[in-house]
Structures are given as C-alpha cells and as structure tokens.
C-alpha cells in the first residue's frame, strides 16, 4: 500500500508546465529591466536626491515662484553655472520619446520605454548596478511620472507646455530643505504625465526648461514605470 509520501513524490510529473519559450524568458528579462529602472528612480526621487546632495548648483529665482503655504523650507543657494543654449537635436531619438531640442552639444545617452537621459559630452554612461543609487548630477532626466510629487514645502510655478498646464518646483534635499534641482511635471496630449528633472548644475533657466519640455513627445512605445 503506497503512502502519502509516494503520492507526493509523483506530483511533479503531474503538474502541467507553465508558459515557456524564448518570448516568455524575454518578458522576464524585460520585467527585470523595468524593475531596475523603477528602483533607480525611486531611489532618486523618494529617498531623496542622492545626487542632488552633491550638486554644485545654480541659484533658482525663488521669487519667481508662488510661495507654498506655511513653507519653512528654503532652496539651496548655489553659484551660477555657465548658461547653455538650446539647439535642435540631431542625434538618435530615445526609446518611447521624441526630443527636438537639447542643450548645445548634449545628446541622449540612455533611454528605455519609460525614461531617457540627456547629458553633456563626456558624461559617464556606465550602466548602474541594480539597486545602486544613480547619480543624475549634471544630466537632464525625463520620465513618465511615477510616484514623484512635489513636497508640501515646494513653491510651484505654473507654466504653459504646448497648451497644457505644467508645474515647476523642487524636490526635497532633506527634511525641511528644498533641493535646487527642479522638477517639471506636465501632461502630454495622450494623457501621460511627464517628469523632467534638471539639476541646478546643468545651468538651464526656467524658461529653457520649459522650452526643452515643449520639444518632448511621448510615443506609443512609452510605458509608465509606475513607481
């Protein structure tokens, strides 16, 4: 008479296999890629600007912003950086987006279906390790907005992005202290919420950030990272 253990031993042969094949494995890899991207952005956006802490930054005209209610926070004072000129972008377009203008001599150095980076010549483009905090210092990052949102302390300036309402403000550098990195959120025609992140060290004015954002189009390949 067999025992329960004998029945259990034979269960593996009886369990039908799941989906398999190169497409399934490729989908697993793609999910891994998205998770790495999501974690990278969460580390930066949520845990607080690892890169921003080290930023040598440009002063942002805080007076241009409408003050946040009862805001004790202050924007980090920063030295001026060389002013850049926006020019028509001639290089390869990022995945999931189209970009028409970039700072002169800058180019798209990496992209996926949820984000892309624009960096000056000579920027380090080494791929980060999973989970590793990524420095976006000196680079412009564009993504479909995940969990990022302005802290209550941030003043928010309303701007026009191709007829849509954009909002320009600051993330926190640490509790009670705003970073000098600027975030611009705006919706595109398809309803995507796009986030542009510009560290002060990049040296773009608010108007230039708005002009840069106006040249961004989210394509059908784009996917929100959701995180």
């Amino acid at each position: 008479m067999p025992d329960v253990m004998d029945v259990l031993k034979n269960l593996p042969d009886a369990v039908p296999t799941g989906r398999s094949g190169p497409d399934v494995v490729a989908a697993d890899v793609a999910r891994g890629h998205r998770a790495v991207t999501r974690r990278r952005w969460q580390r930066f956006g949520v845990t607080g600007a690892v890169a921003v802490v080290a930023a040598a930054a440009v002063g942002v005209g805080a007076g241009q912003f409408s003050p946040a209610p009862s805001s004790p926070a202050r924007v980090v004072a920063a030295p001026a950086a060389p002013r850049l000129e926006l020019v028509a972008y001639q290089g390869n377009q990022p995945v999931g987006f189209e970009v028409t203008t970039v700072p002169e001599n800058w180019k798209v150095i990496s992209s996926d279906t949820s984000s892309f980076l624009v960096a000056p010549p000579g920027a380090d483009i080494a791929a980060p390790k999973p989970g590793e905090a990524v420095s976006l210092e000196g680079q412009i990052a564009v993504s479909l907005q995940g969990l990022s949102k302005f802290p209550a302390e941030s003043p928010v300036k309303k701007v026009d992005i191709n007829g849509a309402d954009g909002r320009l403000g600051f993330p926190l550098e640490e509790e009670g202290k705003l970073s000098d990195t600027r975030w611009l959120f705006f919706p595109d025609n398809a309803g995507h919420s796009v986030q542009v992140q510009v560290p002060a060290s990049v040296g773009l004015s608010d108007d230039q950030i708005v002009s840069f954002a106006k040249g961004i189009t989210v394509t059908a390949q784009a996917q929100s990272i959701g995180g």
């Binding site: 799941g18 989906r19 999910r31 891994g32 890629h33 998770a35 790495v36 390790k129 999973p130 989970g131």
Partner: peptide, 17 residues
C-alpha cells in the same frame, strides 16, 4: 503560479549581481 514566478524572477534579476 505564473504571477508568483514572474514576481520572483524580477526580484532575482534585481539581485543577480
């Protein structure tokens, strides 16, 4: 089970290095 494995493999990918 497929959902579980997909989630588990994503965690594995993150930890792979």
């Amino acid at each position: 089970a497929e959902d579980v494995v997909q989630t588990a493999l994503t965690k594995l990918y993150l930890a792979w290095p």
